[in-house]
């Protein structure tokens, strides 16, 4: 069959795997964005910078304190998430009663500052982060070679996305979040500390971005612009999936990653733009996004 369409299976599956990995990052990043947008009504433009921070914290931990990948996978999201909590407490909180635009401007400005600081410190060429020893190498699956670390990235992303979805759909805390997304005033009038819930949600969303950053460190270069490159695509993913839709952003993230990979096989010239073409089409046909509810 593959001979029929003239594509060797190794190339096809290889690109699909690459696509799936990009999709894993899109999914984790857009999940955090969707959570934050749902509850805070803030479009978190700092998300890419926070992803980059996650990668740098892991790199700094390794190079200055000798702390390995596995600990960094936990520590970096906690550190960057705590930084997010500080941002929410000191700055974002003051903007909730204003137009969306103010939150967007603040987070965009912060992203530029953070990126600029790291550019100053580390230049733009980037640092490399080694793949942890147990995850080096790979398996020959017969039809393709699967590098172990890449399989691990897809696995962790799936677990994180599914776990977050389960918490939101099936637990009491999740019902507070869903209700708080709809009508925070009433949820607070039932006795729930909504301002604290908002702070923690922001911290969690930022922590997810940092986790994606740590996962990315051994695959991509750790560099100041890594977030800016990624975040533009992730915003397209969120728009396609539907702003604030949790499941929508996860499914869309993986699907679009795959689509991007397949485009690389069949029409490489379009691989960088295909997501934006999909975005334009979706916006024309279903402006609320594939999984969004029209309001």
């Amino acid at each position: 069959m593959f001979e029929l369409i003239g594509i060797p299976p190794q190339a096809l599956f290889g690109q699909m795997l690459l696509g799936l990995i990009n999709g894993a990052f899109y999914a984790v990043l857009s999940l955090g964005l969707a959570l934050i947008f749902g509850l805070l009504n803030v479009i978190n433009f700092t998300h890419g910078a926070q992803y980059m921070l996650g990668a740098y914290v892991a790199w700094l931990l390794l190079n200055f304190l000798g702390i390995n990948y596995w600990l960094a996978l936990v520590l970096a999201p906690v550190v960057v998430g705590a930084f997010g909590i500080l941002l929410e407490r000191l700055m974002l909180r003051k903007l909730y009663h204003l137009d969306h635009l103010y939150g967007l401007l603040l987070t965009f400005g912060l992203a530029l500052i953070i990126e600029g600081v790291f550019r100053n410190l580390y230049g733009i060429s980037g640092q490399s982060y080694p793949v942890p020893p147990v995850l080096t190498g790979g398996y020959n699956l017969g039809f393709m070679f699967l590098p172990l670390y890449r399989g691990w990235v897809v696995f962790v992303s799936l677990v994180v996305c599914l776990g977050t979805w389960l918490v939101i759909e099936k637990t009491k805390l999740g019902s507070y979040l869903r209700a708080g997304t709809e009508n925070p005033t009433l949820v607070q009038a039932f006795g729930i500390n909504v301002p604290r819930m908002i702070t923690l949600t922001y911290g969690f969303g930022v922590g997810l971005a940092a986790l994606a950053g740590v996962l990315a460190a051994p695959i991509y270069q750790v560099k100041p612009t890594m977030g800016a490159d990624m975040i533009i695509v992730v915003f397209a993913v969120v728009v396609i999936g539907g702003m604030g839709s949790i499941m929508g952003s996860v499914v869309t993230g993986f699907m679009l990653g795959l689509l991007e990979g397949l485009t690389k096989v069949f029409y490489p010239e379009a691989s960088n733009t295909v997501i934006f073409v999909v975005m334009a089409v979706v916006l024309l046909i279903k402006p609320a996004g594939l999984f969004g509810k029209a309001s």
Binding site: R178, A179, T185, L186, A189, F190, I192, N193, V194
Partner: peptide, 28 residues
């Protein structure tokens, strides 16, 4: 006092627009 503290004292509010959450089922 903020409204969450007031609710914790033992007051409960049923709003005019009812405020049923559409993302929750009836039991939730």
């Amino acid at each position: 006092l903020p409204s969450n503290r007031i609710a914790r004292l033992g007051l409960a509010y049923c709003p005019e627009e009812r405020g049923i959450f559409s993302s929750l089922n009836v039991t939730e």
